[in-house]
């Protein structure tokens, strides 16, 4: 194939740009945190979740006993946490500070104390 010098330069440039974009996407994906949270009456482990502002996170929940809930109103995310299943919420913290989360599925006497904190820096 007899490509002109200009055309060859253009193709090499395009390929490089494409590779850079793929690398950037892979970098962003590898930066995303996945944090496992285990619920049991009437606690979450961990109950303080440390996140970075602007960095997407997936929280993976499981429960060791009864159905639970997870609700973080400041980030508009909630899920049921059912025995034998993994529940996920994904969000990107858009503000720094300490924000509470709580169980919003009544799980027995002690439910009202089942809370935790998301700390975003």
């Amino acid at each position: 194939m007899n490509l002109s010098r200009e055309r060859r330069r253009f193709l090499i440039g395009s390929a490089s740009a494409g590779l850079c974009a793929i690398a950037a996407m892979a970098g962003a994906q590898s930066q995303e945190q996945v944090i496992k949270v285990v619920a049991r009456r009437f606690t979450y482990a961990p109950d303080r979740i440390l996140l970075k502002k602007g960095l997407p996170v997936t929280l993976e929940f499981s429960t060791l006993d009864v159905p639970m809930g997870f609700n973080a109103p400041d980030f508009g995310v909630r899920t049921d946490i059912l025995p034998g299943k993994v529940s996920r919420v994904r969000f990107t913290p858009d503000k720094a500070g300490e924000f509470s989360f709580h169980c919003d599925l009544f799980c027995g006497s002690g439910h009202e104390d089942m809370t935790g904190a998301i700390v975003v820096t």
Binding site: N71, P73, D74, F99, S100, H102, D104
Partner: peptide
Amino acid sequence: YPQWDWATR
């Protein structure tokens, strides 16, 4: 005050 679950879904 949804932070304390003082709401109705």
